[in-house]
Design a binder for these strands. Structure first.
Lengths: 139, 139
DNA sequence: TATTAATCCTATCGATTTAATAGGGATTAC
DNA sequence: GTAATCCCTATTAAATCGATAGGATTAATA
């Protein structure tokens, strides 16, 4: 299940990408437009900033802006920052690998085999989707 | 993240499918072989039986067996029983659909669009994989 | 029929994670 | 110097997860 954090984060990024003003987008503005609790959104945008996806301007008239063009922001990157591993089990994760306690041999594990396939098919979607795709207004 | 329940369930099903004896497989035997807490496994097999995937024989010399050939047991079915919805958000779930509180219009929601793609690519894996595939011994 | 061994069922518990809130510090425009 | 905004840490309430406990029911068999 996708966490609210990730859902809110994706909505916020889309909002910023679709925006046309030159000034940075403020948390309050985004929260109101997307029906996201403001304080929660604050912490999410902070995470995205620390990950280098967003930049920020502090103080009055401050806010958040994209560090790259929407077409250069891949879903793989966003999802890993917000949701963590893309794989459903750590033993097939490319970026967050961990061995299973119980499994004596990964190559014989039926779950492992299946989850590699799921991971790869999900990765293919995220690698081929950018924030620009999410931000297109037509459905 | 895949729950332990699902992971254990898949391992147990694989164990039963690979087994060659005619007698039903007992919980204790499976638990020991696959390093699964026995009481936890009991409840998982019960779920699979209620869903019609496993059959059981009660009393002494009882145990569990597959109701269908492994090649007729699709991962879509198993995953829905054990893990629940395949979709990452209820608003794109085929079998467990629910509208989002916050979203005024699904067709305009960037998350919705992305998650439909993820759902479809995951479904493609599960629809094309049966318990027989999981149970092949070669990696 | 009594014993044993298995599934079946309900309830509960502890730990973790999630979603959200609280409260204030630091910074900048005006 | 005041108001507006991002920055940061801590806390909380609720939900979920993984596991355990304790026994009821059923069937084989001695």
């Amino acid at each position: 299940m996708l966490s609210k954090k990730t859902k809110y984060g994706l909505k916020a990024l889309t909002y910023i990408a679709r925006r046309e003003e030159e000034t940075p987008a403020q948390v309050g503005e985004i929260a109101k437009s997307e029906s996201i609790p403001q304080k929660f959104l604050e912490s999410i945008l902070l995470t995205l900033r620390k990950a280098g996806i967003l930049g920020s301007k502090k103080g009055k008239h401050g806010g958040y802006y994209l560090r790259k063009a929407p077409s250069d922001i891949l879903m793989t990157e966003v999802m890993r920052v917000l949701e963590g591993p893309i794989a459903m089990v750590p033993c097939v994760s490319l970026n967050f690998y961990e061995k299973c306690d119980d499994c004596p041999d990964e190559n014989l594990c039926s779950v492992h085999k299946l989850m590699i396939q799921v991971r790869d098919s999900t990765l293919q979607v995220f690698r081929n989707t950018t924030l620009a795709d999410l931000s297109e207004k037509n459905s």
